[in-house]
């Protein structure tokens, strides 16, 4: 499985209308960040949670966000960041 994104790529987290056990918290949806690393492929947790095998595996990335891009009123320095793991089907290129 080849990763669609590479470290340094700018990506946007999608607003998928998907019920159930998802690992993409609300606060990053619709936000733009940068791929920090390609973690590798893992069973899809959205399927694992409901008793399936998790196949096909999903590519997982660590994405870096500027805190100021996550929270309009972030109170700290502009350099502060947050990193989180996001599966490929939740990401779009910017």
């Amino acid at each position: 499985m080849n990763p669609r994104f590479q470290p340094g790529d700018r990506v946007k987290v999608l607003h998928r209308d998907q019920p159930g056990h998802v690992r993409t918290p609300m606060y990053v949806r619709g936000k733009t960040g940068v791929i920090e690393r390609v973690v590798g492929s893992f069973p899809n947790p959205e399927l694992l949670a409901v008793g399936h095998s998790g196949l096909p595996y999903k590519m997982l990335y660590r994405v870096n966000f500027r805190q100021g891009d996550l929270w309009e009123d972030y109170g700290g320095p502009a350099e502060d960041t947050l990193e989180i793991e996001i599966y490929e089907h939740w990401l779009a290129p910017v």
């Binding site: 947790p45 947050l82 793991e85």
Partner: peptide
């Protein structure tokens, strides 16, 4: 200190 970056890691998946 303000000149040091704070980097938060949300441990939300497989790491």
């Amino acid at each position: 200190p303000d000149q040091k970056q704070v980097r938060v890691h949300d441990s939300n998946a497989d790491l």
